[in-house]
């Protein structure tokens, strides 16, 4: 139908429970192209579970997920990846026996549909493209380093390069700046923001650092115990009483004076 006007991501009444735990309850929201949206909430709110549902790693119990107007819920993760959904993981998932560059090269090979080719020599494929992506996330100098020995923040950067190597329509970043110094955080978020703006990617990220959330997000969705309790522009969220109540006792995280960056970072 009106696929052109459809948002890149439309989530409708999504539900997921683990045994007795309702991790995601009746969640609905949209993300448009070029939008950088933050998904926040206390530990265990269901942010990562949302991501797992969106990229097909888990099947929702109920509800629908549409990518540019096409249903993707129920599809396997690899198929959803091919449709243009890329993600990073809360605990960085990289190929440990490969170098940083090779990680990105494999992602580029997969994007080109050549992941099963026995005619292409992997270390020689897409080298220049991989370097360009690494330069973008500030990892060019560590291109030949093994992924198993990287500092945590660097591994997260590699993941971002791997994710954007897929030229996604929808980019999901689970705590992309965890383990980084405040300066690197800002730089990484600038990269993410420019990706969304220049390449019209719909980007969704979770983050515990409220400076990053309020500094970069176009819109903020607040989850609490699996339910959305607020969805709006940063100014609206800051003024929202319910959000304040949820975060109360957690060192006033909604102030932007930088005193709250010591929150749980992993």
């Amino acid at each position: 139908m009106a696929a052109i006007s459809a948002p890149v991501l439309r989530v409708t009444r999504l539900v997921k429970a683990f045994g007795g735990v309702d991790a995601v309850r009746d969640v609905s929201f949209t993300v448009d192209a070029g939008e950088l949206v933050a998904l926040i909430g206390p530990n265990g709110a269901g942010k990562t579970t949302c991501f797992n549902l969106l990229n097909g790693q888990m099947r929702p119990d109920a509800g629908t997920i549409e990518l540019s107007g096409m249903r993707i819920d129920g599809l396997p993760a690899r198929v959803i990846a091919r449709r243009g959904v890329a993600r990073t993981f809360q605990v960085a998932a990289t190929f440990a026996s490969m170098t940083v560059r090779e990680n990105v090269q494999v992602a580029l090979l997969a994007r080109a549909g050549a992941q099963g080719s026995i005619a292409l020599r992997a270390p020689a494929a897409f080298g220049a493209e991989a370097d360009a992506l690494l330069a973008r996330v500030g990892m060019i100098k560590l291109g030949n380093e093994g992924c198993a020995t990287l500092a945590y923040g660097d591994a997260k950067r590699v993941e971002l390069a791997v994710a954007i190597a897929a030229a996604p329509r929808l980019l999901l970043m689970d705590e992309p700046t965890a383990g980084m110094s405040p300066r690197s955080r800002t730089r990484l978020m600038e990269v993410a923001a420019s990706l969304a703006k220049k390449e019209r990617i719909a980007a969704l990220f979770t983050e515990h650092d409220m400076d990053m959330v309020f500094g970069f997000a176009d819109r903020i969705i607040v989850l609490d115990r699996g339910q959305i309790i607020a969805d709006g522009a940063p100014a609206e969220i800051r003024a929202n009483a319910q959000v304040r109540a949820v975060y109360l006792g957690e060192e006033e995280p909604l102030s932007t004076d930088g005193t709250n960056t010591s929150k749980k970072m992993y």
């Binding site: 790693q57 998932a93 990289t94 190929f95 026996s97 494999v106 020599r121 992997a122 897929a166």
Partner: peptide, 24 residues
């Protein structure tokens, strides 16, 4: 050394990552 071989090693290193970039 082929793309297939690297994808295979990818599935060994991190099945999660492999699926997330579209490797079956």
């Amino acid at each position: 050394q082929s793309a297939f071989g690297y994808s295979l090693r990818g599935t060994r290193d991190s099945p999660l990552r492999a699926e997330a970039i579209g490797i079956d």
